[in-house]
Structures are given as structure tokens and as C-alpha cells.
């Protein structure tokens, strides 16, 4: 961590010795339009995909927490995409969303709908990426499932005696008791979404194109480090990301007081 801060204060291309430049890298960051582009791309992705992921994972967990036939099979099938190798999955998406012969485009053509340039029109690329991210919500799903199993049956029974509907039980019994788990998944989801890299790297070949619309922050950081060898500047970028994630996490912890329910005083999350 401290080494990173030290490097961030230098100009260093790995070929010649590092030069001390003080805060110049941080100043350059503020004037770098690509930093804002990368932050914008990442923020849009995070703001839309994290709530969607949490929402669908929670819905799925609630549905599959009921006693239904084939419960185990359903759970397996819904969790499965989360263990897929990211590179293989990205190659697959590249094919599925191909504008000339992808299966999605074929479907649109059969319905006589216009072709959508899923991965080459900057207006659609982020939507495509958010859709892709919804494929692997398995981890959040399993954690929600565990949380649901921790809700005591006695509380449900009591609510039923009091005449609560299904929705009422979910809203006033399950949801409050589940808030710590929602909070955990929220924090993890935000951190993960700010670090999205491999899918973007494979799908755009490392460029973040079209029009830098997929230049996520870590992709830009990678290019500055290992393509342009700007070690000092890239370290400054890394610190920028760290500070952003730290602020978001702390803000979340501060806000958590208002909505996260603790069964025992002094609970950690």
C-alpha cells in the first residue's frame, strides 16, 4: 500500500530510473479526460448492474427457498454460470452478441426487428455488459439463500397467526432479518463492479472500444501499467480507485445504521 503511494509520487517507465515528481501524477489525473471517461463507464455499470444483480439474486433465492419439487436441480442450474471460466464465457458472449451472425441478432431478424450493434455501438455496449453481468449472480444468490434459511420458522408462524399475507410476511419478517445479508452482498457487489476487467479485456481486445464506452477503470489502469509502462501514473490511478471504493464503503456503513437490522446489539455487519 505505502509502496504504491511512493511510486505514485514518481515518474517511472521501468526503462530509466524513477524520478520524484511529488503530486504531479495526481494533478495529471484531474486533467486526464480518459480518467473521467473510465469513471463514467464504471459508475454507470456499477449503478445499474449492482441493484439489478442483487434484486434478481434475492428474488431467485426467495423463490427457491420454498419447498418445491426439483429445488436442488434449479439451484444447481442457477448457480452454474458463476463457476464458468471468464475467458471462455467472454468468448461465448462475443459470439452470441455478434451483429452479423450472433444468435441474438438472428432472433431479432426472425422477428423482423432491426439489427442492434450490441458490442460495436457505444449506445448499447453498456446495456450489453449489464445483461452479461446478470448471468453470474450465483454467489449473491447462494449467500441470500443461506440468509433466508437463518430466518426462524417460528416468526413466520407467528405472523401467519396474526393474519399476515405472503407479501406481508416477506416485507415485515423476512426482509428486515435479511438486511445484514443484503448489506454484505451490496458491499461485495460494489467492490466487484468497480474492478470489472477480464470480460471487458477479452471482448474489446484490451482497447475499451467502441469510443472508449467499455474503458472500465481497471482496464485503463492496466493499459497505463503494462502497455504504456507509466508506473507512477498508474499507481496514482490505483490510489484513486482505492479512495473511491473506501469512500463508498464507509458511506455504506454510515447509511447502514438507517436500514440494516441487528438482532443482537453489537453485531458486526
Amino acid at each position: 500500500m505505502l509502496a504504491s503511494l511512493f511510486i505514485a509520487m514518481t515518474h517511472w517507465d521501468m526503462a530509466s530510473p524513477a524520478q520524484w515528481v511529488g503530486l504531479a501524477n495526481f494533478q495529471a489525473m484531474i486533467h486526464d479526460p480518459l480518467v473521467y471517461q473510465a469513471l463514467y463507464d464504471t459508475a454507470v455499470y456499477a449503478v445499474v448492474s449492482v441493484p439489478l444483480q442483487l434484486g434478481s439474486a434475492l428474488l431467485l433465492a426467495v423463490l427457491l427457498n420454498q419447498r418445491i419439487r426439483g429445488q436442488g436441480i434449479y439451484r444447481t442450474l442457477y448457480y452454474l454460470p458463476s463457476v464458468m471460466p471468464t475467458v471462455a464465457a467472454s468468448v461465448l458472449w462475443l459470439f452470441i452478441f455478434n451483429q452479423h451472425f450472433g444468435i441474438v441478432d438472428a432472433g431479432l431478424r426472425l422477428l423482423h426487428l432491426p439489427t442492434i450493434y450490441w458490442l460495436s455501438d457505444p449506445r448499447y455496449t453498456k446495456t450489453t455488459f449489464i445483461l452479461i453481468s446478470l448471468w453470474s449472480i450465483g454467489n449473491a444468490f447462494v449467500i441470500f439463500l443461506a440468509g433466508l434459511q437463518g430466518v426462524p420458522q417460528s416468526l413466520h408462524d407467528a405472523a401467519v397467526v396474526d393474519g399476515a399475507t405472503n407479501w406481508g410476511r416477506f416485507r415485515h419478517v423476512t426482509l428486515p432479518l435479511l438486511t445484514p445479508v443484503i448489506f454484505f452482498n451490496l458491499i461485495m457487489g460494489i467492490i466487484a463492479s468497480f474492478q470489472v476487467f477480464t470480460t471487458a479485456y477479452v471482448i474489446t481486445g484490451g482497447t475499451g472500444d467502441p469510443n472508449n464506452s467499455l474503458l472500465f477503470y481497471v482496464l485503463y489502469l492496466y493499459n497505463e501499467t503494462f502497455v504504456r509502462f507509466q508506473m507512477g501514473y498508474a499507481s496514482a490511478l490505483a490510489w484513486g480507485l482505492f479512495v473511491i471504493i473506501l469512500i463508498l464503503t464507509l458511506a455504506n456503513f454510515a447509511l447502514a445504521r438507517r436500514w440494516v437490522y441487528y438482532e443482537q446489539p453489537g453485531g458486526r455487519w
Partner: peptide
């Protein structure tokens, strides 16, 4: 667990180099 892995990426790379 919550620390973004990218922050330590560059010092780690330099160390291994």
C-alpha cells in the same frame, strides 16, 4: 478481502520483477 486487489498490483509486480 475488501481491499481492491488492483491497489497492490503494481508494487507486487515491481517486487517480483
Amino acid at each position: 478481502i475488501m481491499l481492491p486487489a488492483v491497489v497492490t498490483l503494481i508494487p507486487q509486480f515491481i517486487e517480483f520483477r
